[in-house]
Design a protein around this nucleic acid. Sequence first.
DNA 1: AAGAGGCCCTGATAGC
DNA 2: TGCTATCAGGGCCTCT
Length: 287
Amino acid sequence: MPELPEVEVVRQSLDKNIKQKKVKKVIIRNRNLRFKIPAYFENFLKDLKINKIDRFSKYLILNLSNKSYCLIHLGMSGTIHMVHNNQKNQLTNTSFYNSPILPKKHNHIEIFFESLKLVYNDPRRFGFFQIIKNHHFLKKRFAHMGPEPFDTKFNQKYFFLSFKNKKKNIKNFLLDQRFTSGIGNIYASEILFLCKIDPLKKVKKLKKKDHQKIIFYSRKVLSDAIKKGGSSIRDFKNTLGKKGTFQNHFNVYQREGLNCKRSKCSGIIKKKTISKRSTFFCNTCQK
DNA sequence: AAGAGGCCCTGATAGC
DNA sequence: TGCTATCAGGGCCTCT
């Protein structure tokens, strides 16, 4: 599900609701995620304060009061639900446990704060929670990842050097987190549509003008999506269970067979599988 | 060494 | 209705 914009929407919500709050209790319902949640996890988090919530790429980074970090990745189907409780004796109040907004299955982790709890749900279990000891290991954790599109390092010179003599197509490049991090399958298609670039185009054939368009529209698509609360394709919801609306603004994604939205283009949106991922593009204006 | 492909997992949907 | 096959937004590992 979640690419950079969806993770940012979750971050903003966490920032509003759990910043500067102390973890009162942690319950693990199911330790099996991409990485098994270690036995020490609950006790480690207990009584730590969440200083702030950062995000890098598709990762949430909880900054903890003992200088460590809790990394959260939502994988394909992870969601974080927030349940408020204004009653006293929150930790034992039953309404706290049986909220109607919570999914019935696949609730893996519950983190309790004074007046609310977070519930991590993940049917496909591709997501994970990971404790990172200190800043040094955090840097190391992300060392292999390329700059986000918003980063000033994501510039024309970087494109020129990265694309030199490379045989790969631009769609796969945008999805390669070592080149740039945060773009996923939906936004890769949307970005290339706005650039009028064929997703199968080999990167070494791209001109300077193309580089600049990709930089511009990567930033535009991601920031527009954040403003719209992300995209809800299947089941992405923010922490309040609300859906994003950027899916209503897709130009190509899941629009196979429909007319190109560009006013002067008479093209049809096509779907093609590129490296096992579905890719949508206009057969006329993307060259 | 770059690039393609497999795999982790469950659930929704399509086709018979 | 009920079976099976296919596909899904990510990322990491292996193989060539």
